[in-house]
């Protein structure tokens, strides 16, 4: 579903991702783990088009997206939940949810999000900025799902979220993935979350893919060592 080949991303002369290739098959949840500053956020921002890629290829359903602006990538089935949620704080929950929808608005889509995250319906008229971290995360995921994606990218979804809610997010992601046959790519530092949630685990180090395992083959101790500062 999502095929990334030889992706190179640089800020001016500073190359953050020298070369990165991976495939995320349809309906799978792929976890990308790595220490701070290893290029996870840069990779995700390049995938959604918030920062340009120097070279390489990003394909969704065989369609090349690497030169396309963000909104066209969204129209082609990529959705992004960024680190820190970045919901629109002065829009209501409802407005946040429909902000990215192009064309006609389907009430069934909104109801589906409300059934996944009931708290969003309760707080639909509240400003996004007044929600707790966990509620904002649900809103950010709901906002991304409203665009009917084929690939959902989540950058460190557990950052700043209390442990009980982290388990809830993990359950929601697995449920969403199964319900919609969605490809999900998650970057994380919390290995337990990745092992609970993902079908396969990749390790990123200084912008390169250094390890890739199916969940059942993951050597947790070795990856913990790699994640240790």
């Amino acid at each position: 579903m999502l095929a990334v080949e030889n992706l190179k991303v640089a800020y001016g002369q500073s190359v953050v991702i020298p070369e990165f290739s991976f495939d995320a098959p349809k309906g799978e949840i792929v976890g990308i783990v790595g220490r701070n500053g290893m290029g996870k956020t840069t990779l995700f921002k390049a995938l959604i088009g918030m920062i340009p890629s120097a070279s390489g290829s990003i394909k969704v359903d065989e369609k090349e997206l690497v030169k396309k602006p963000s909104y066209e990538r969204v129209a082609n089935g990529v959705a992004f939940v960024p680190q820190g949620r970045m919901i629109f704080p002065y829009l209501t929950v409802y407005e946040n949810l429909i902000s990215g929808v192009s064309g006609s608005l389907d009430q069934e889509d909104i109801d589906e999000i409300y059934s996944l995250f009931p708290v969003l319906e309760e707080m639909s008229k509240r400003k996004g900025g007044n929600l707790s971290g966990g509620q904002q995360q649900q809103l950010a995921i709901g906002r991304a799902l409203m665009t009917k994606p084929k690939v959902l990218l989540l950058d460190e979804p557990t950052e700043g979220i209390q442990p009980s809610i982290i388990k809830e997010i993990s359950r929601s992601l697995r449920k969403i993935g199964e319900m919609k046959d969605l490809t999900i790519v998650v970057s994380e530092q919390v290995l337990s979350f990745v092992l609970d949630t993902c079908d396969s685990v990749m390790v990123i180090d200084t912008g390169r893919l250094v390890r890739e395992d199916r969940r059942e083959d993951v050597d947790a101790e070795m990856i913990k060592e790699m994640l240790a500062v």
Partner: peptide, 22 residues
């Protein structure tokens, strides 16, 4: 709907693009 997209863009331009707003 256009007003909503305008208000989103004002609050966070790059994120607006990333949720699908032109």
């Amino acid at each position: 709907r256009f007003g909503l997209k305008l208000r989103s863009t004002v609050q966070n331009r790059s994120m607006s693009g990333a949720v699908g707003i032109n």
